[in-house]
Design a protein around this nucleic acid. Structure first.
Lengths: 215, 215
DNA sequence: GTCTATAATTAGATAGAC
DNA sequence: GTCTATCTAATTATAGAC
């Protein structure tokens, strides 16, 4: 997935194995420790010594599984991103009355992303998007793109909503939710500009429903 | 503004002076160099050596103007944030026909934030929001809060739009624009999920106008 | 205040025993 | 593969001359 000639090409294979061998168990142990440190301190702010300590392995053990700090970071972030992607879109049965389902979708999303681990992942993807563009591209291609496509197809399946540009509308719907998470949860809006999420969700859904009744 | 007992309390005063004295000129020179490096490499990824080289001063000169790396970073980010705040909201004459003005506002905003310097600033505010919460709070209190208030008051001044919750609507309006910038410009959506900004802006404005005609 | 030179620490990465 | 011990370079910060 991520272009990195220096990393082992079989990086991804381990994602689909339950760390059965002893070597893979160490590998998972390293990734677990690396996640704690990288997500909390960022790429440059993380030292291999701290990763080794957090993972409970010797530093050299890390270097026998990953080429270098950059290789470890990329492998970790790729795994975490794909995990997140799979966990967010397990809701395949996206059907039913828009007034109910759209609100439900918004509630589920906003509840899910309020989690500190998710916030840390989002923070680092954005923060490192310049130095690690491949990670940002993976995030955009999976998490963002799939989310929008799902919603866009739902809009297309409900012509009674009278939506002319379903892709643009999906952009607006998710965009409003993303920026709510961003400002309220990540940038301390919750304490500085408090606003109940229900007001935003209700306004957003009414906007779509009322606009459809006008057709 | 930012609580930092170790920084010189007169930090902010220099923001309103044109570096007249020789000392202040050096100080501005340092901040200019620091901006290049910090915005490009992040806090942990920046070394004082590189800042000194970029600013064209000796490293010790930096330490005679700022207490340490953290103090320099905070002073720089505070200045840049407040500068950005002032430059974005010079549009005090926000009046006129909604169909025209709202589109104009969106166009101006999206054009402005596509700039690489603005993107870098946004990236670092988000990326460092955990380690430097005071910076994120300053950003939220100024840039985000003022932008929303301005739009919210505009909505209130136009009851013909039939907006019940103007604050929530301002959240949605700006949120859609912010997330457009975020995904398209910063997270490589432009090349991965291309969508013309006009489609989003038009859909957003039609949403508001059509919903009002339904009243 | 500003510079050159340097201290003290920590970083990423490796050698070699087992 | 995994560990302990170590190398080399880079880092933050400071001393001391001018």
């Amino acid at each position: 997935m991520l272009k990195d000639s220096r990393s082992q090409p079989e990086d991804l294979s381990t994602l689909y194995q339950e760390g059965s061998s002893a070597a893979n168990q160490k590998r998972e142990q390293i990734l677990q420790g690396a996640m704690q440190v990288f997500l909390q301190s960022g790429y440059a702010g993380t030292s291999m010594d701290r990763v080794a300590a957090e993972a409970g392995v010797a530093k050299q053990t890390i270097y026998s599984h990953f080429q270098d700090k950059e290789g470890l970071f990329k492998a970790l972030m790729e795994q975490v991103t794909l995990d997140r992607f799979r966990s967010v879109f397990c809701l395949e049965d996206f059907e039913g009355d828009p007034a109910v389902r759209l609100r439900q979708l918004a509630e589920i999303y906003l509840t899910k992303v309020a989690d500190q681990n998710y916030l840390a992942l989002t923070r680092i993807i954005i923060g490192e998007s310049e130095r690690f563009p491949a990670l940002a591209r993976l995030w955009t291609s999976t998490v963002i793109h799939r989310g929008r496509s799902l919603l866009s197809r739902y809009f297309d399946a409900h012509p009674e909503l009278g939506i002319e540009d379903s892709e643009a509308m999906a952009h607006i719907f998710f965009g409003s939710l993303v920026s709510f998470m961003l400002t309220q949860e990540m940038l301390y809006g919750k304490e500085l500009i408090p606003i109940e999420r229900d007001r935003v969700v209700t306004t957003l859904i009414n906007l779509i429903l009322k606009s459809s009744r006008e057709e």
